[in-house]
Amino acid sequence: MRAPAASDIAAGEAILSVKNVSLAFGGVKAINDVSFDIKKGEIRAIIGPNGAGKTSMLNVINGFYHPQHGQITFKGRTRQAMRPYEAARGGIARTFQNVALFKGMSALDNIMAGRTLKMRRGFLWQMLRIGPALTEEIAHRRRVEEIIDFLEIQAIRKIQVARLPYGLQKRVELGRALAMEPDLLLLDEPMAGMNLEEKEDMSRFIIDVNDHYGTTIALIEHDMGVVMDLSDRVVVLDHGVKIADGTPDEVKSNQAVIDAYLGVAH
């Protein structure tokens, strides 16, 4: 059966919903009975103190961890566990907290690698690199160049990513995720370790991606200013439990959230 396309889901309806998901590593409960949803076209933030289970949550969503309980419905299909490859195929892309680029490849090749799922020609064609194989390669190169323009990294496209500064690496990684043309983009701390200017750039890119491509975005971020400005809705986790869910303003004034971040007097 064909997976329903993202366009079948109207804006404002849930593209992804997580129901009663629990994940434990031995005795450690990383996620405990968490439910929330992400609506198509919104920017959804997942926040919480260190060790709250935010990254684990992303890993569950894109199939890297398999939760013991609960269900995940993505684009109308419900499943408990799937392979990361299937998640990618279904239209989930992500970036990582500590950059996970292909260090030995150029920025251009990294982003081109993101087009893998869209490239159809078999290895015999690629080996000859004539006719349809070359046409395909050029067509995808053109799409990748659009992304490079969008992220303003034209000057570094031929440079090996290991030689790039951290901020640019983060940008290339976003480019690689965008090259997949995902329906849902998961960003794990896209602004960690950046200075103010880089954060402003990155925020601009995130808003533009959401605006131009209509991509639904779920992001984890520690910078509260960024979270409150960017996101439409925020879910707050603490010790693997959901403690709040709502608009930035609602969350900001929630007593449980304030306690989790600032601590409670005993």
């Binding site: 894109n62 490859y85 030995g104 290895f123 690629q126 080996m127 690199r129 997949m180």
Partner: peptide
């Protein structure tokens, strides 16, 4: 031709970071 095409990029992706490679659909 192979190593500068799609398959070559898949190989290098596996070499450099196999987890991320799988997450982009390799």
């Amino acid at each position: 031709n192979l190593v500068r095409g799609n398959l070559g990029r898949q190989w290098m992706a596996i070499r450099d970071m196999d987890i991320a490679a799988e997450l982009i659909g390799i």
